[in-house]
């Protein structure tokens, strides 16, 4: 990881620049309060200002691909046919990433691959209209209807975890019935991406608030659709700021790594290394 001081400096610079260029647009982002979502030393559990994160244990994961399908079901991700797919129009929020082996002759490593929800997200910095932004709880969010489809964010994202709707998605006939009413469908011409199932967090939060209680770690652990479906329980979700949470505990595992960590993006998705013995 790069020098945190340098990064925060860089970040402050970018924020200032953004404020100057975008004027009022950044107000909400400023209000959102940068700074909570660094993965620095975890403090006390504070669900008002959590940093949502995910640990994917590759030593549990079998690449059964349930997570990828569960995401499509939950988030109304449009399916494209073979022709479109081969032209690069596949829309995917979480897929399987295959990494070349480090030593020649060794097996490649596969891993579930959602948006990394970087604390310092390159995509957010380039969006000219503030359609994509960091939420105060560390999610790289996107407001579909604000997106103008310039795709700068797709260029900026070092992980390639953003997809463009090359056309108005179609749900033929009865297929429209199965769409999840909790997640808006995206029109043609906008970029879409993983939201950490933000709608499910929001709902859980409200339910808990109505019941007058705090969020419980157990109900968060398998909250996103990918984590809920995983038969191997390889995906754990929760608050990285809460040192007691399962996700924070697992994130301290010596097997931990982050993808492209040398870029200093500080992903909120932390992988635990596959172990072959």
């Amino acid at each position: 990881m790069s020098d945190p001081k340098r990064r925060s400096l860089l970040k402050a610079g970018v924020a200032a620049l953004g404020a100057a260029v975008l004027g009022k647009q950044t107000e909400d982002r400023a209000e959102a309060g940068h700074g909570h979502h660094r993965s620095g030393p975890p403090g006390k559990a504070d669900h008002a200002h959590p940093r949502w994160g995910m640990v994917i244990d590759l030593d549990r994961c079998t690449l059964c691909s349930s997570c990828t399908t569960a995401c499509r079901q939950e988030n109304n991700v449009p399916s494209v046919g073979p022709d479109d797919d081969h032209r690069g129009a596949l829309i995917e929020w979480i897929g399987i990433l295959w990494q070349e082996p480090e030593q020649p002759g060794a097996l490649p490593t596969g891993m579930p691959f959602p948006c990394q929800h970087c604390a310092d997200a390159p995509c957010v910095k380039v969006c000219p209209v503030g359609a994509t932004f960091k939420s105060p709880d560390g999610i790289t969010m996107q407001i579909w209807d604000r997106c103008i489809g310039c795709r700068y964010c797709m260029v900026a994202c070092p992980y390639g975890r953003r997809s463009f709707n090359w056309e108005e998605p179609e749900w033929s006939g009865t297929q429209v019935q199965m769409l999840n009413p909790d997640v808006a469908t995206r029109p043609g011409g906008v970029v879409e991406k993983c939201t950490f199932c933000h709608h499910r967090i929001r709902r859980l939060r409200e339910d808990a608030a109505v019941e007058g209680r705090e969020l419980r770690d157990e109900e968060l652990q398998r909250l996103p659709a990918c984590a809920a479906a995983c038969p191997a329980e390889a995906i754990t979700f929760g608050d990285l700021h809460d040192p007691e949470s399962k996700v924070a505990t697992q994130a301290r595992d010596p097997r931990r790594f982050q993808l492209l960590d040398y870029l200093g993006t500080d992903p909120s998705v932390i992988y635990l290394k596959r172990d072959r013995r």
Binding site: D28, S135, M141, W144
Partner: peptide, 10 residues
């Protein structure tokens, strides 16, 4: 009350 985009938008 909160005013971040994702309070009310998706």
């Amino acid at each position: 009350a909160p005013t971040h985009c994702n309070t009310c938008h998706q």
